[in-house]
Each structure stands twice: as C-alpha cells, then as structure tokens.
C-alpha cells in the first residue's frame, strides 16, 4: 500500500478536528495528552465550558508566564486561568460533576478502544507494579458521552489501537461513543465501528488495512 497519498494529522490536528464537533453550551472535561489541546481550537465566541476534575469549572486561556497564579492549576498540575463566570469547588463536588452525569462530554486519550466501546488507557499490563488510574475511570463512566483522541496505530510496530477486543486492562466497559485518530473519525455503534470521516487521500480499504477491528462505511 502507498503511504504517500495522505498525510496523517498531527496531535494538534486531531485536537482541532475534535473542537469542530463541540457545540456551544457543552460542559467538557479534557484528559491529559492530545485532548488537552482541544480547548485551544474552539472558535472565539463559541461558549464551551471546560472542567478540571481538581475543582475548576470554566477554564480560561493559558496564563502569560508573568501572570501565573500559583494557586490555580488543572488536573495535570499546569497553571491555568479562570474565565469570567467560572467557579471553584472541592474535590468531591468536582467529581460529582463528572460522576453525576453533568458533563456533556469527556475526551480521553487511550491505548486501545474496542468495537463494543471498551476503553483501555491506564496500564499496558495487569502486572504493572505501579498503577496510574487517576480520574479516568470516574470520567469514563460518568460523562454523558465519551470521545477518545489517539493515534490510530502504535508508534513502534504500527499495531492497530482500534480493536475487536482490548488487550490491555480496561478503564471502563462499553462507554466510548466516538474515536478521533490521526487517520479517521469512527463512531462506536451496536454494529461496531462506523467511519464518519477520513483524512484527504485515504481510502476506506487503506484505513481498514491499518485497523484490526472491522469497519463499516457510513450508511447512505
């Protein structure tokens, strides 16, 4: 197969593609990694409210280096600002926002997504000595919808991260609604993955060749 006919999106490209699909008025939590970049691509004037699970709702733009508030960080412990209308709350209330179904959307990074909506994003093996769960399990089951942002294939041997069944330990079962990769946008449906969008120059057949799980064309 020829790799010259198309150019995969870079990480910012994936983030920008996601931002296009977030309507005004949604409350959104962005995970660490590719998802963090999504807020930079929401068009000015479209009011989307971003939540940080450490107790912030209404994240503003990144502060200038000389404007950093040492008391105000996001879930990655990176300095942030609060936009007008934003609010602070304690950790249990902040996770109540996530777990209680008050977020319209959560976007997480992942190692793998399966065709039934399973997500694996916290461990590469059940035997990893130290665990890095953080808030992903809470966000994955609690948000109204979960989208995943990740590269379609692994960097090393190009293995598909879009799977029939996840091979890594699950973060949550059957919760992913849509996946944005550097090659395509896939909806998770009762019939498996449906291709909503592909990057220019990529054919359905070339995409399927890079994907372990069977893909379907969008009906119509």
């Amino acid at each position: 197969m020829s790799d010259t006919a198309f150019k995969p999106l870079d990480r910012n490209g994936i983030a920008a593609r996601i931002a296009r699909d977030i309507p005004e008025g949604w409350f959104v939590n962005l995970g660490i990694g590719i998802p963090t970049g999504v807020s930079d691509f929401v068009p000015e004037g479209r009011e989307v409210i971003f939540h940080a699970e450490n107790g912030v709702i209404g994240i503003g733009p990144a502060p200038a280096p000389d404007q950093v508030n040492p008391h105000l960080v996001n879930a990655g412990v990176t300095p942030i600002t609060l936009r007008t209308g934003g609010a602070y709350m304690h950790h249990a209330d902040s996770f109540a926002i996530a777990r209680g179904g008050h977020l319209d959307l959560c976007v997480l990074g992942a190692f793998e997504v399966a065709e039934n909506g399973d997500i694996a994003n916290w461990a590469r093996s059940p035997n990893e000595p130290v665990k890095q769960v953080g808030g992903a399990m809470d966000l994955a089951v609690g948000a109204q919808r979960l989208w995943v942002a990740m590269e379609h294939n692994t960097k090393g041997n190009g293995e598909s991260r879009i799977r029939r069944v996840c091979s890594y330990p699950l973060t949550a079962k059957g919760v992913v609604r849509r996946v944005y990769t550097d090659l395509a946008v896939l909806d998770v449906t009762p019939d498996g993955f449906v291709v909503l969008d592909m990057i220019p120059g990529l054919t359905f057949e070339a995409l399927q060749a890079r994907t372990e799980a069977p893909l379907r064309r969008m009906p119509g």
Binding site: A92, M137, G142, A172
Partner: peptide
C-alpha cells in the same frame, strides 16, 4: 480511582457507611 477516593473521604465525614458506584466496576480494581 480519584473520584471514588474523594467520595470515600466525603462519605466518612458524612456518616455514610458504604455506597455503590459504577466507577471501576468492570476493571481489575
């Protein structure tokens, strides 16, 4: 899980003896 951690702590302060949550229910934890 971080939200469960916060809620377990809050529950202790509020006199809640136990609770059920879908978080982590289908995982190794």
């Amino acid at each position: 899980p971080q939200g469960t951690l916060a809620e377990r702590i809050r529950a202790a302060g509020a006199g809640i003896q136990a609770f059920y949550t879908p978080t982590a229910a289908d995982t190794l934890l």
